[in-house]
């Protein structure tokens, strides 16, 4: 465990919605080129936590974060960091596929343009490569100018993954990416995530324990805003050290 490279390090993170504390003293490490899964019953704070990693919770009014989150040893909540650049480096795929109401091509082109990629030929190259990496290229190569809203749910989610890949992030956050997909699309996405971890560092929130077991290297179990247990997935799922983890995994609550 120690010879792995830590990309993200959370230390004593507390988070509040107004008066209500949603996360309590969370500390965990995210390792390079590994899949880290956050599991726990709904309302446990796993989505809240993942949205802290690219500061998406900035958009939610009356929230407050305490503690430190480091990306490559730089605290992402302190002055020196540019939040826009942070979000480019730490990409995100959302629970519900949320393509822009534009063409398939424009969905990817958008991120490149806002990040100042001026050369059109270069953009096209990056778009094609992103679509290939997201295993969507074969299905959409003849209809790049059609609306993204015409794709199926699973295709839309892969498009959102491609959109995220196009701007060349280092870390990708998946916030329950299969929550609204059918089992076949879900399998596709899972295979894709395993493929992607060779090049990227991945954090995924899931309410599906089997999914966490299938694709993750590390698992963190959260309950009521607290981190109950964190470690290698195989250990967590076979010999959990905490009683509560065991009860959750065996379906006693949640």
């Amino acid at each position: 465990m120690n010879n792995e490279m830590v990309r993200i390090k959370a230390e004593n993170v507390n988070f509040y919605y107004g008066q209500k504390q949603a996360l309590k003293n969370i500390s965990l490490d995210v390792y390079q080129n590994k899949v880290t899964a956050l599991i726990g019953p709904s309302g446990c704070g796993k989505s809240t936590f993942i949205r802290l990693l690219n500061r998406m919770n900035d958009l939610v009014p009356r929230t407050r974060v305490e503690g430190n989150i480091f990306l490559d040893n730089v605290d992402i909540n302190r002055g020196q960091i540019d939040v826009v650049d942070l979000r480019r480096r730490v990409g995100m795929v959302f629970q519900k596929p949320n393509p822009f109401p534009k063409s398939i091509f424009e969905n990817l082109n958008y991120g490149l343009k806002v990040n100042g990629c001026k050369n059109r030929a270069e953009r096209e190259k990056k778009i094609i490569s992103a679509l290939q990496k997201a295993a969507l290229w074969q299905e959409v190569k003849d209809r790049l100018n059609e609306s993204a809203l015409g794709l199926s749910g699973g295709q839309q989610q892969r498009l959102c993954i491609a959109r995220c890949l196009a701007v060349n992030p280092e870390v990708i956050l998946f916030d329950e990416p299969c929550a609204s997909l059918d089992p076949i699309s879900t399998r596709y996405i899972e295979e894709l995530i395993l493929e992607l971890k060779r090049d990227y560092t991945i954090v995924i929130v899931t309410h599906n324990m089997q999914q966490a077991a299938r694709i993750s290297d590390f698992t963190a179990f959260l309950y009521l805003g607290e981190l109950i247990e964190f470690g290698l997935t195989e250990k967590i799922f076979t010999v959990p050290t905490q009683k509560m983890t065991e009860e959750y995994l065996s379906g006693k609550f949640g």
Partner: peptide, 26 residues
């Protein structure tokens, strides 16, 4: 939809870019 804003910010667009290129056209 708020999801357009989130998606735009998540690919590294600035607040103003999000308003100009995503929110206003929609």
């Amino acid at each position: 939809p708020q999801s357009y804003r989130e998606a735009s910010l998540a690919v590294g667009a600035t607040h103003w870019q999000t308003i100009k290129k995503m929110v206003l056209p929609s």
